[in-house]
Amino acid sequence: MSAPVTAVRRSGEFFAFCLDALRGLGRRPVQVREFVQQAWFISSVSILPAALVSIPFGAVIALQLGSLVRQLGAQSFTGAASVLAVVREAGPIVTALIIAGAGGSAICADLGSRKIREELDAMQVLGIDPIQRLVVPRVLASMLVAVLLNGLVSVVGVSGGYAFNVVMQGGTPGAYLASFQALGQLPDLLVGEVKALLFGAAAALVASYKGMTAKGGPKGVGDAVNQSVVITFMLLFALNFLVTAVYFQVVPQKGS
């Protein structure tokens, strides 16, 4: 089979898999236990790295914008610019990277090793659909954690940026907050959370699909984890672009 045909077939299978997961969403019984366990697990592997990444990220944005804005002679908007950058873009992206790198790889490795140990086959034979039993709770958990994580990253990032601007670049707290009032609005926060929700779902779906189709022994699982992280990153950046483009079309911006 030629490479393009294989690629198209894989995408088709992945799409069918997503539809199955969507259908599994409505099916009883709801796997509450698995969901709670997974949400706990994903947050335990992602909270610390997310917090640690978002402080320097917020600071870098503040630094970049701080000097750029000064060059343009618009110091009074430093606050607004860095908060919006963090909340709209940086927050969801950091969340996505952490969710895909820490949560997604763990999901993929877990499902992949279950696949090669024939646990998933055994489950199907026992009359239980692994998509409903294992994948749906993981996707939901990943979405929940992504949204919470995005909140965390935004708060930490904005504080980092604020501290950096006020303490190190000599900005004034009042100007920082006032400028944000002037340009920011509620939909900015919402779009960040919507992005995080989508990223969480995409990361878990790709990881689950790759894990459940792993083959060829332990090496196959390693390959699947590797591919799932790479594919998720590409997918997330594409999704991010789409959502941002739609957002600017749909939501009128303040002061423009």
Partner: peptide
């Protein structure tokens, strides 16, 4: 079904 390696949930 008894699988070749038992296929227990690890």
């Amino acid at each position: 079904v008894l699988f070749q390696d038992g296929a227990l949930f690890g």
